[in-house]
Nucleic acid binder design. Structure first.
Lengths: 233, 233
DNA sequence: GTGATGTCAAGAGCGGTGCTCTCGATTCAG
DNA sequence: CTGAATCGAGAGCACCGCTCTTGACATCAC
């Protein structure tokens, strides 16, 4: 779609791309709160009101950044999974976890925009959800394939999921098209929350003065969580 | 310290208390970003510049709110632990987890202030750390007592912590005065991050359209994480 | 080619923010 | 009782998101 449309449409698309790029850079220095349309306009040599021709409001610009962010982390996760040996399910899990952490460390403010405190007054439109699940799709695919290959060996006896969760499990099964027993799904969710909880703790400062060997600790924790699901390291 | 000092000092202390209370209320409606000194002053029938007599900057007011928040969640955790049967370590763990979730659900914006995205441009002073560890002190005490009582039975064989983490483990051992093997400490950290990761996911919207039975799911996940450490349900 | 149409940058303006400074009034300590 | 410290009030600075209007420009149909 590079040379599509009239000249006006092309320059418009290019300007939108440039605006989001500058906004992303400002996100990295001032945070989501400090994102300022006026500042973006100033950096582009534009007058502030002109920005509103391209993004009707600050929230629309935020939405564009959020969708871009989800797609970026989703792409990183997909790439990491594709590069690992298909049969090494534990290795794929760890590779995906590392990809999430890596992306978060290199794009801390974008990560905070996606997984941190919700931006006050901002309501995420429906457009964001389809991009938001790209990483979980990869995660569930790994576990589903491991389960199908009989390589899933949960450590020790664990309490079964309560029956009240059956509805949620069924919905997740169809939404992510995974053929897994409920107990495995809840463990996968636990590992999923543990992954992002660990990344958030590291990024948001909870590990300060506590854990210094961040990479080694992360690998170890993710291995523990993988074992919880039944993935061999 | 209620009737201490001169009349001026007493009215000053009362005003500071009132400012933080109003600020906390505004935090609950507008978020940390929307916290406005002018709005606080307006609600107090004061002129905006007068606030600066009591809090030299917006960051100082934020610091006060953060310290209050850490103390509030710490108190809730301590109370929950004290009310559980001392010998039921799994029950104490679950009670503490529930207390954290409960407090987070009733004070979502304060929780976001503590465990969400860092406020841009805000640098937490050293005063906050002593209040910030009250919950982890309780968590480690439960696990330490369970370990001392021989009630810790980690499920299945897990990979040992890599030697590079020995330094971090030693520092944590002395800082939190817990007498635990390194493997147990790393598992406790994993459960700790899993606890807050789950609460953050629920509060920050990642569970929307995914998990509806929040309380049941939370209990189950926390039980799984407790089992990971070796706590029986 | 020319006129209608749509798009654009620019500017002024509104109400809001954190923060600083000054100026009287009040209150406290010596 | 007096000098010093503290206080509320107000004006002001630079910034913010956002709206509205105006005039210039490119595009397209006829």
């Amino acid at each position: 779609m590079s040379a599509g449309g009239t000249a006006r449409e092309r320059v418009r698309a290019e300007l939108i791309r440039e605006i989001t790029e500058i906004a992303r850079r400002q996100l990295a220095t001032a945070g989501a709160t400090g994102l300022s349309l006026r500042a973006v306009a100033r950096e582009m040599g534009m007058v502030s009101s002109a920005i509103y021709r391209y993004f009707p409001s600050r929230d629309d610009l935020l939405t564009a950044l959020i969708i871009d962010g989800y797609n970026a982390v989703g792409e990183a996760v997909e790439r990491a999974d594709a590069q690992a040996a298909a049969g090494d399910f534990g290795g794929r899990w760890l590779a995906v976890c590392r990809a999430v952490r890596e992306w978060a460390l290199t794009h801390p403010h974008e990560y905070a925009l996606l997984y941190g405190s919700p931006v006050p007054g901002y309501k995420a439109p429906e457009d964001t959800v389809s991009a938001a699940v790209r990483d979980t799709v990869v995660l569930t695919r790994i576990i589903t394939e491991a389960h199908a290959a009989g390589a899933l060996d949960p450590a020790g006896p664990c309490p079964p999921a309560p029956p009240s969760l059956a509805g949620d499990m069924a919905r997740a099964r169809t939404a992510l098209s995974m053929d897994l027993p409920g107990d495995v799904i809840t463990r996968a969710f636990t590992a999923w929350a543990g992954l992002y909880g660990t990344v958030s703790f590291e990024l948001f400062g909870q590990f300060n003065n506590v854990i210094e060997e961040r990479a080694a600790y992360f690998d170890h924790t993710m291995t523990l969580l993988g074992r919880l699901v039944g993935l061999e390291p």
